[in-house]
Write a protein that binds this DNA or RNA. Structure first.
Lengths: 112, 112
DNA sequence: CAAAGCTGTTAGATTATCTCACTTACGTTT
DNA sequence: AAACGTAAGTGAGATAATCTAACAGCTTTG
């Protein structure tokens, strides 16, 4: 019930090896982009970095822009720009999805 | 575009330490439930187990049933039962969500 | 040209995970 | 009571994964 809506996408649970594998980036690059404030992994007690799927998507974006010769500094400011645009959009989306779920629930979810 | 629909929930990317933390189960228990065929983590090249969010949800379920004294063997058969019921439901859900996304896209997604 | 940006690589240390075996605690069966 | 199966803790030893820090090389920018 509260688990259903958990934003898996943003949960920091993935270690750097998997991130490297999924993005094709080296450990060095991944850590460097953190140093340049492009991504913000969390840490476990002992210091191991933990990333989310969102971070991975971001890294893919970063990799693409880097291929186009864009510097991390510019990428950083570019990413800051694209934030407000999303917040309205995603809010609207949330609301619509809320309606959607309500509709679905009242009509079809008769299991327990 | 194809990333948006990626089923993060089923991607096997989480190591056992995090799983233990999120579920409150010990390493021993997590591995034992695998031995009893309740969950099916993947492995990396070198043999490290990797779990998905689905696995974690399943483990929470398992933990609850265990607290009620249900044995792993029974849990296993119970879980097999609850599979067909879901497949119709989720199929329907997919279809509805498809309509939903189409609707949203044509009306609001004018960014690029 | 000098400085800054980006990445590879190496080294040594620490943390995380793996398997296997032994043990404990309970409840059930013989 | 003795034997048994289930579920889980614990310990040992080995291997895998990650961390920081430093040096090096190459390219781009000022």
């Amino acid at each position: 019930m509260s688990f259903e809506n958990t934003p898996y996408k943003d949960k920091k649970v993935i270690s750097i090896g998997i991130v490297s594998e999924l993005t094709g980036l080296s450990f060095r690059q991944i850590r460097y982009y953190e140093e340049r404030k492009l991504i913000f992994p969390e840490r476990t007690e002992k210091g191991t970095r933990k990333y989310s799927f969102s971070d991975i998507e971001k890294l893919v974006e970063i990799a693409n822009k880097r291929e186009d010769g864009v510097q991390t500094h510019e990428i950083r400011t570019e990413m800051k720009k694209g934030k407000e645009k999303q917040s309205e959009k995603s809010l609207l989306k949330e609301m619509l999805r809320g309606q959607f779920n309500a509709h679905f629930k009242s009509n079809h979810d008769r299991t327990s």
